[in-house]
Write a protein that binds this DNA or RNA. Structure first.
Lengths: 229, 229
DNA sequence: GACGATTTAGACAAGAGTGTCTAAATTTGT
DNA sequence: ACAAATTTAGACACTCTTGTCTAAATCGTC
């Protein structure tokens, strides 16, 4: 009588569950050890399946690796678009809202397990699988960056910002809010939340000094957007 | 009776040359294949020495790896400090001078062979050798970033910039001028020169919008620094 | 409870890589 | 040219890993 066992996953809940569990553990091990250093037996142990099951599902090590990257790309993309949906279109407090967005982006998409794994795999194996990671580049940054740029363009159109090239601004926004986390990211570490907030705060302030509309000394035509809502 | 054997060069002249050649080739192979994937025979072949010579010099694979990272850190640091020495202290054209500095930093220290190798090794093996790369963090960013910050502080003191926290400004400068190269760096690629110039130009312009002293609409006291030299 | 599909453990062959050893060849200093 | 140090090539033992195979155990479903 197992009435309240977690209905979702952990125990072998069938064929597809095992496939998931395998890809999941493989992501962890590939991320930690790299492709060459990863050991199928270790992946099997971590996934709680036998080695043979992995071969049954995925054929060989390389196909398993490809499945892992595709899976991570898809999940990360979903997370990023979900976060982009929280972009402040009609900000009350522009600075605070942009800082919040930057922190969410970092915590939910870059510093989480999937984001960390995918980043590591791109860094370590990017040169070995050009076509696979070219695909990632198109599906990942190739779609998310323009989406972010579009949000900044809307902010500019609404009079909140003064932006010449939204694509450049979007990339620079990401560069700024991550400026203080670069070293940690390079070493594969995970920054503490207060570090993320600090970097985002500093980054957004600089971003607004560059692209914000100064209310005081401007002589340009007046922009009414700041007064609405 | 060895009267004047220099105490430094006990072993013959070719000895040290071989050591160099080994570390050099090892850097290339470790960078390309990662630690686990690197093959001592391949390193030996690429260095033009026998495998046994590598073991004579470095003991084992791990010690060789450590020697490679130390060597790269030292050489990259030297390059970065040499480039920092070209930082514009009394700029004629602030924008152009900062763009030039950013491009030099990228081309001579980040995109060159040593820089690319070191970055890759940090990314791929950073978690496996915490103390080794902690050492890099101290010797590398821990020393170069404050040096750059000091130069920005001097620019601010000279009236060319308006900076509250030079350390933050330095990190953001680096984040901005590299903002458009992130994806390429992640994949282990080398950006074309025009991409580097483009990213640096966009980055410096934004940096100056945030930290530059506006000559035109300002009502503040005039700053004479721009007129000298 | 029974049947078919899936999973499992373990053995296995084949290949690759590390690190050691030895004897011969080469280089270096005098 | 000689003697010492160094380098070399190759063989070697050992370990580790991948991918296959088989027979038994387990699971899902009726």
């Amino acid at each position: 009588m197992k009435l309240h066992v977690s209905p979702d996953i952990f125990p072998p809940r069938g064929h597809e569950a095992k496939r998931l569990s395998i890809v999941d553990s493989a992501a962890t091990v590939f991320c930690r050890e790299g492709f060459a250093g990863a050991n199928i037996d270790l992946i099997a142990a971590e996934a709680g399946v036998s080695r043979q099951t992995i071969y049954n599902h995925h054929g060989d090590k390389e196909k398993l690796f490809v499945a892992v990257v595709r899976d991570l790309t898809e999940r990360c993309n979903a997370g990023i678009f979900a976060t982009i949906a929280t972009f402040p279109d009609r900000p009350n407090d522009l600075e605070a809202d942009l800082i919040g967005f930057a922190v969410r982006l970092n915590q939910n998409c870059i510093c989480n397990r999937d984001g960390k794994c995918l980043r590591k795999l791109i860094q370590t194996e990017g040169e070995r699988y050009p076509e696979l990671f070219a695909e990632w580049r198109e599906q990942g940054p190739g779609r998310t960056w323009p989406a972010i740029a579009a949000r900044f363009a809307r902010l500019a159109y609404g009079g909140y910002l003064s932006i010449a090239d939204p694509d450049v601004a979007a990339r620079q926004f990401l560069g700024l809010v991550n400026a203080e986390l670069q070293t940690t990211f390079m070493l594969g570490g995970t920054p503490r939340e207060d570090e993320v907030v600090q970097s985002a705060t500093n980054g957004v302030r600089t971003f607004l000094r560059a692209f914000g509309k100064r209310p005081a000394p401007s002589s340009a035509k007046k922009h009414t957007a700041l007064a609405n809502a």
